[in-house]
Write a protein that binds this DNA or RNA. Structure first.
Lengths: 205, 205
DNA sequence: CCACCATTGTAAATGGTGCTTACATCGTTC
DNA sequence: GAACGATGTAAGCACCATTTACAATGGTGG
């Protein structure tokens, strides 16, 4: 879990300027989302966590939604990076597709805070084009793989949409705990790999 | 579309007792969710819509989350009914599976308000066992179909989880507008049917 | 070196929210 | 027809988002 050195989360007591309040606020918000769910976050509380006054955030974000939107965008970018990294690790195209899906599932589990801001915060995406753009970039990776994998653009699109829906659905259900087997035992991500492999090995034509 | 006659949504002006405040509040909340997103709902506003004071709801629901939870449970039950209804319409097992998926997608689109309360409201499901129960019942329908379709319980479970994830993901992406084709044209649900058919026709063994 | 000033932070206030408590009214039952 | 449970109201608390007016900071041009 690479966490960029030891960042300043709280402002030092005697200081006036924080140094990197914008980043701190996003981290504080993410922590609140992690601890109290996607709705359990408030600007005021994030301010307190960062050790500044409640008005300070408004020097960096137009409003609460703008803060959330920026976190969402960060999330999409992080997701895309992680997918690309996973894809680069293997040579075989089939494996690349499987790994991109596994990366999606890992992201949803390891960065559940980002994931819930991205998909469960009820943000009005149409108001933040940069989110749309980042999301589309990420999806582009999947589309690219599908295009290499399928013969026609139509089949590629079908494959890409199906793949995205499958991993997105798995990720969502996993986060809701709906995938834990009857006994309540949680599932390893590796246990989901066969689902992806089956999907990839299904011929489209 | 079936809306139980013409229900009393607002209390009549001169009356003191409402008659069915509980139902009215849930309907008001759903309307607010539909109009202003999953976060744009407040108990106070729902009260106003129902024509009562802001404290009145607390005679019927322990708190805001309890109201949301009951709506979610209603949603799971409605979803289950609609899936069962669709399944009954066709005889062939393969078609039943496809139709159950289509019913899920229809539900997500036609009852986007319920769907978002069920999956995007950030409700703490572990606090409301009745939600878990209703959700599990609905999933039971899918599992049942899968058990008829596959030879072993293991394959059936794999099939059921995959099916659920696929339609759940499609529904979620559809609601986010992520499925609209490049031109921004929205997709007919029937256009998604081939995805489900492909899935069903894939041999598991 | 230092006075300026954009940047970043603070304090206080506004209007709104969820929720609780104390009290008022209804209408059914005995 | 009175008592009582069901139901509704009014008022108040704590919290929140946001704005405004002001203050501290530190980099920059003179």
């Amino acid at each position: 879990m690479p966490v960029k050195k030891a960042k300043v989360l709280r402002k030092a007591k005697g200081e006036y300027h924080h140094g990197d309040l914008k980043t701190s606020l996003k981290q504080a918000a993410l922590r609140l989302v992690r601890d109290r769910g996607p709705r359990g976050f408030s600007v005021n509380e994030a301010s307190r966590l960062a050790g500044v006054s409640v008005a300070a955030p408004y020097r960096h974000f137009h409003d609460k939604d703008a803060l959330l939107a920026e976190i969402a965008r960060d999330g999409y970018e992080l997701l895309e990076r992680e997918i690309r990294k996973s894809v680069e690790k293997v040579g075989n195209l089939r494996e690349q597709i499987v790994e991109s899906g596994m990366a999606y599932l890992r992201f949803a589990r390891n960065h559940a805070d980002y994931f819930s801001v991205m998909f469960q915060s009820g943000l009005d995406r149409s108001k933040y084009p940069e989110i749309e753009r980042s999301a589309r970039n990420g999806f582009g990776v999947i589309v690219g793989l599908a295009q290499q994998y399928e013969r026609t653009p139509e089949l590629a699109e079908l494959r890409a949409v199906s793949a995205w829906a499958l991993v997105h659905g798995l990720a969502g259900l996993d986060q809701d705990g709906a995938l834990s087997s009857a006994a309540g035992k949680s599932r390893t991500l590796e246990q989901l790999r066969p689902i992806l492999e089956r999907f990839v090995d299904q011929p489209y034509n």
